[in-house]
Amino acid sequence: MEIKEALMVPFEATKKVIRVTKALFAPKATEVWWDKGVKRELHYRGKHIIKAELCIGCSMCARACPVNCIEMVPTGVKKPRAVPKVRGNECIFCGLCEDACPTKPEKAIKLTDNYSMIVEPGTWDNLYQFVFEPEGLEEAIEKAKKMEEMIEKKKREALKKKQLEDKKGEEK
């Protein structure tokens, strides 16, 4: 470095110091949000919501999940045969399960804008039980059972009719 440049260094440095002081009077960028809460964007990928009455039990979401955190819980009825259950502490919130869900027009598994997920205390036992359960599962099961009963009734009636017809046919 030349001597001339070296002599200019303190002056240049002082200039920069004065310029940085400008920032003291600029508006602050911090948003104090802790007390207010923040509204997230429309399709923020947060906590799951699983609607059991829409689910058809195809287990596409479980297959699409990259970390295998979706478990298909058997319901004991035929339709849906099983519903998804998401283990919250393993989930990476990629939203691929939502993409894979085939139900139309509304998806049975969806990621909502609920981003505050606090588990306290954060021990392994607590985290292990931190699961997103399907909503309205019992109602859906009851509904499905009723449907099954109705279908069975209809089937029985149809069978009886058939048998009666058969008998009639035999009698003839």
Partner: peptide, 20 residues
């Protein structure tokens, strides 16, 4: 975030286009 729903781990570009 407006595009994909996440700020950092967007996972928004897939084979075959973009996700959103």
């Amino acid at each position: 975030e407006t595009f994909s729903g996440q700020r950092i781990a967007t996972s928004s570009i897939v084979p075959g286009g973009v996700r959103y």
